[in-house]
Amino acid sequence: MSVLVYTENWDGKFKKATWELISYGKAIAEQLGVPVFALTIGDVADDQLNELGKYGAEKVYHVKGEKVSKFVAASYTHAISEVAKQVGAKVVMFDHNFTGRSLAPRLAVRLDAGTVSGVVALPSSYEPFVVKRSVYSGKAFVEMQIDSEVKILSLMPNSYKVSENPIPISIEAIDLDIADELLKAVPVRVEKIEGKIPLTEAEIIVSAGRGMKASDNWGMIEELASILGAGLACSRPVSDEGWRGHDEHVGQTGKLVHPNLYFAIGISGAIQHLAGVNSSKVMVAINNDVEAPFFEAAHYGIVGDAFEIVPKLIEAVKEFKAAQ
């Protein structure tokens, strides 16, 4: 019996979200009295795999080869399912990112398991097994009970603290036969945006709205995000106007985000926008309209002209960073 953590890699590297997930898995495994195993698919060097031991993984199952060189939901599900059965996984966990959202539900069907996506804390109870997630656009939380023998979770990034728990780790290469039947929806092209922090995992997000008046004015927003190491986002009218790409739209019909810190610059704070950002730990609103609804939701606010405030804010952040 074990807890099995699917550790996704990005061009052979793990990220902070991976360490969060292993740390979370380790805490659950301790409660269940079982070891934590990791599973990774694709080319990853052994020294990177060994890093997983730092957070408590006893063993990593490494599936590689031509057939798994590209992400295909059906074939990856098959691989994870085979390993989960082999190691008697009681709990299988994923990051709640684009990959986890594809794999966790498919695996739930495969293993006839209950699954809860986007969990934000350790289980509040193990017998029965109860986990917490956000619902109704961040307006409430729900505690969900999973009754099946195998339980599948996806963990919201930024919701569990990384904790080191070093143990020696062993690596086991797994050779799997994957039927061509499972390799139908294959990526023919992958386009990566370099240097941009994905919103799903960003710890800080700088978001701007219609108050910026035109796409040409985004230079200062980009600069602020860059010096903060933040992800860039926007409100719906901005992406609808084509000032920024749809991938940056946060809100009810865009992305739901959950950073530690969210800057809303020139965003009035319509309920549909707040629905996507409500789960942020701390929100800062900068708006020239003191009546903007965002000030009701925000923790900190500045009333004034963004075109004057943002450059000053950039200077303040630079000074802060220099003093650190």
């Binding site: 739930a108 006839d112 398991a113 209950g114 699954t115 809860v116 109860v130 619902v135 961040g138 307006k139 409430a140 939380f141 729900v142 505690e143 969900m144 009970q145 999973i146 009754d147 099946s148 609103a285 000030f295 009701e296 939701a297 925000a298 923790h299 900190y300 606010g301 500045i302 009333v303 004034g304 002209d305 004057e308 405030i309 000053k312 804010l313 200077e315 303040a316 000074e319 802060f320």
Partner: peptide, 25 residues
Amino acid sequence: HTKVVKFTMPESRGACKMIDADNPA
């Protein structure tokens, strides 16, 4: 295989702390 145990409301966040526009530091 899953069911709702209960719903809870997030802690209320209190009033927004306003900062002077001349002092982003």
